[in-house]
Design a binder for these strands. Structure first.
Lengths: 155, 155
DNA sequence: ACTGTGTAGATGCGCGTGCAACGTTCTAAG
DNA sequence: CTTAGAACGTTGCACGCGCATCTACACAGT
């Protein structure tokens, strides 16, 4: 079962390379399909959805810009601009941080929570259709196990 | 083992949602690490590497723009510009298509093949370090099986 | 208090991307 | 032959992103 020794150490078989390329393709496809659907139905980019989602899960629906940037896998400047847009659309507000004058909170507004709630069915349907429903329970467990090895970092 | 019935059909458990988010994070991380390495060591973006790789595998090291765009998951205009850059750097050339005056081939040059050969060890090392070496042979098989279900399209 | 080092966000800039529109060429119907 | 429609690739445009830089503030040591 685990007698890969020497094969995966030296170089890469064409099956392994093909596996990697397939993984890339699958990921891009799934993400694009999801984003397209979200954009079409709710005029919401995937990154925006992610921001709203993370904020909705945070205590007091607020998160420091820095923490938020880490969670949504965006550069700090990228997040600044994204929050600009979300603020312009009234989905998020900036609020000063009492304990640290440098810091800002991004706060989910009521409108933002509403928009998130609207879009969530689309989001869930998307990941089910593209991903979860395609695999059975055993495969999902295997997938989780692999991801834990690939990505041991704290959430 | 396969008694998901009803659970994955109705809505999404938080484990499933977490699984999906982890998958996203893992994918972004792996891709970014790989691209950063490639960029740092060989001044080659991942998309550029992919183009060179696909061309090197094609008969006569050439591919129609359209076919190439499909393979590297880029829009037609995106590919036009990418080929512009690669041509400027001498890694690729455009060549008219005899049978169809609308068509163009992107052709890998010697310099392009050389650059690809230079970068390939970095590329392979990257996907091994980030992905292949982390999993054992059984997991890689499971992964392949899942990808075949997720992405049944022809390569 | 003062100075130096580090951190939180914002901004200028260049780059790469997709969409819509365009010109060119192929193909089929009349 | 002519003409309508589709296909191939390119271009104008706007957008989102990251990097480098900047300002404001925090916190340590003196």
């Amino acid at each position: 079962m685990t007698l890969t020794a020497g094969e995966s150490r030296e170089s890469i078989s064409s099956e392994q390379l093909a596996l990697w390329r397939m993984l890339q393709r699958a990921q891009v496809r799934i993400t694009r399909a999801l984003e397209a659907d979200l954009l079409l139905r709710h005029d919401l980019a995937l990154a925006s959805y992610d921001v709203l989602l993370h904020l909705s899960e945070a205590p007091d629906r607020r998160l420091r810009m820095n923490d938020l940037a880490d969670r949504v896998l965006l550069s700090r400047s990228g997040l600044t601009r994204l929050i600009d847009r979300l603020q312009r659309d009234g989905l998020v507000e900036r609020e000063a941080c009492a304990s640290d004058a440098r810091g800002l909170f991004a706060v989910l507004t009521e409108a933002g929570a509403g928009r998130l709630a609207e879009a969530t069915p689309t989001y869930l349907r998307g990941i089910r259709a593209q991903f979860l429903d395609v695999l059975d329970a055993g495969e999902l467990r295997q997938c989780a196990a692999m991801l834990n090895k690939l990505f041991p970092d704290p959430c």
